[in-house]
Amino acid sequence: MNRREALSTVALLLGGTIVGANVFLEGCTPGDKKAAAAGGPLTFSNDDIAYLDEIAETIIPTTDTPGAKAAKVGEFMTVMVKDCYDEKDQKIFVDGMQQLNDASRKKFGKSFMDADSKQRTELLTEIDKESKDAMAKAKPEDPKPYFRLMKELTLLGYFTSEVGATKALRYVAVPGRYEGCIPYKKGDKAWAT
């Protein structure tokens, strides 16, 4: 997809409304993100958050309990990348948003947002395996692959979210007592904290 096509996709997806200066600058579809590479303060648009929500939801989908999107993991990821990542990891993450979308286009001829959930799962399963293989070969000081960062933030964000902690897992804010040995049967949920 060339730049013109990309721009038209933006218009299509956003109903004609362009959100976020980075879209102007780079002509990005949601997920195509090069702002960090260009320097300046890192910003994420609502479309970025929507895109990250879908990545997170593919990693931790809604099952009999809510998934990562319900836990607003996309937004959590942007906060963490902005505030808790160093510049190097910020760049890996933001470039990764682009790479993931490129990979989707290459594989399915459409952006990640346009892919259906089966395709998304297939793609991310592949990318997960690639990042695992890359980490197996990497030296300890090497940066983590972008998808590992996304996956870690998704798991952290989800399991410390209200739905993740209280619905997918068990959470008691004020236990009030300690019991060292209580019965457990397979299927009982783990404590969130």
Binding site: T58, I59, I60, P61, T63, G67, T121, L124, T125, D128, K129, K132, K151, E152, L155, F159, A168, L169, Y184, K186, G187, D188, K189, A190, W191
Partner: peptide, 19 residues
């Protein structure tokens, strides 16, 4: 609780819910 496992999707989620 295992905090990470291979893969993505329902099977990954399933692996991370129990101690």
């Amino acid at each position: 609780r295992p905090w990470i496992a291979d893969g993505v999707g329902a099977s990954l989620k399933e692996q991370l819910l129990e101690p």
